[in-house]
Simulated assay, not measured.
Amino acid sequence: MGDQLGGGGCGSVFAGFRKADLFPVAIKHIPQANLFCKHVVSGQHRLLHCGFHLTHCLNSLNGKRFPTEVAIMLKLTAEKNDFVGTSAPVSLLDWYDLGHELIVVMERPVPAIDLSTYILLKKGSLQESNAKTIMKQLVVAAIGLEQNGVFHRDIKPENILIETGRRIPRVRLIDFGLSCLVKKGSYYTVFYGTERYATPEFCSSSVYRAGPSTVWQLGAVLYEMLHNQGFITKRFLRKQLKISGGLCQNLKDFLQLCLEEDPKMRPTLRELQLHQWLK
């Protein structure tokens, strides 16, 4: 284990390397008091094989209770067809329940920086073409989570990594500590996430759903990519933050749809993917 990469309410994350092959990893320490809930693993899951030392058969874990973050990352990693690094969510490599804390070991894309830092390096805002490249990948990633019944709940620039060692920047999703497994149509009345990105419906009625909330958060991320200022839902609703008039019409329409105050008026993730701006 090496230097600390970040920390927050859920735990602390450190850089590290696997001793066997020096593969870069991220090591997350989560105090027992910060484990919000546990999930019972059930159903049929195929063998998890990531091409590394970790091989878990979820069938053998059937009926056992795991921290939700571990259960979700197991599920997402199991859905990958081949090796670590083949989809947007970072892969789970191993975990250790020590009683007083949970340690989660994940892949660590290198070189990569979070989207918040990436935006700063681009002088506070991105060119439309660059923002489109990132948003296309984010929408695909969000659809993948939705298909797996996963609600991230905290999509924001700090939880989006950009792999910078490629000609085209590649998006990776991190920090599933506030995520949950959901059924279609489920409503939530307890807020988990970052308050500044809370949906209008939660601000007004203390209720939110997975799909419309994810679309809102994607809109907030896109706003920050383009406007050289942080997004805060309550300021946006009070018209203290406005969508720039200098954006092209298709982009402006896409952003306005994501940031519709009425969740029923927001498009689905599939509809977003088909929007003219992303073509």
Results as ranks from 00 to 15, higher is better:
M1A: 13
G6A: 12
G9S: 15
C10P: 00
S12I: 14
S12H: 12
F14Y: 15
G16Q: 03
G16H: 04
D21E: 03
F23H: 11
V25T: 03
A26R: 01
A26W: 01
K28S: 08
N34M: 07
L35N: 11
L35E: 11
F36I: 09
C37W: 13
T55F: 11
L58R: 11
S60P: 00
P67M: 04
T68I: 09
V70G: 04
I72F: 06
L76D: 00
K80A: 08
V84P: 00
T86C: 07
T86I: 05
S87L: 05
L93Q: 00
L98N: 10
I103Q: 06
R108F: 09
P109A: 00
P111D: 03
Y118T: 00
L121C: 15
K122Y: 07
K123S: 12
G124P: 01
L126C: 05
S129R: 05
A131M: 03
M135V: 14
Q137P: 02
V139S: 07
V139N: 11
V139L: 10
L145Y: 02
E146S: 09
N159M: 12
N159F: 12
I160H: 07
E163L: 13
E163G: 11
E163N: 10
G165N: 09
G165Y: 02
L173F: 01
I174K: 00
L181T: 07
V182W: 14
G185E: 06
S186L: 10
Y188E: 04
Y188D: 04
Y197P: 08
S204D: 15
S205M: 12
A210P: 04
G211H: 12
G211K: 10
G211Q: 13
V215A: 04
V215C: 05
V215P: 01
W216I: 04
W216S: 03
L218V: 09
Y223E: 03
M225R: 07
Q229F: 05
F231W: 05
I232D: 11
R235Q: 15
R235C: 13
F236Q: 08
K239Y: 15
L241M: 10
L241Q: 12
I243M: 06
L255E: 02
L259D: 00
P263D: 03
M265K: 15
R270L: 11
E271M: 12
L274W: 08
K279R: 13
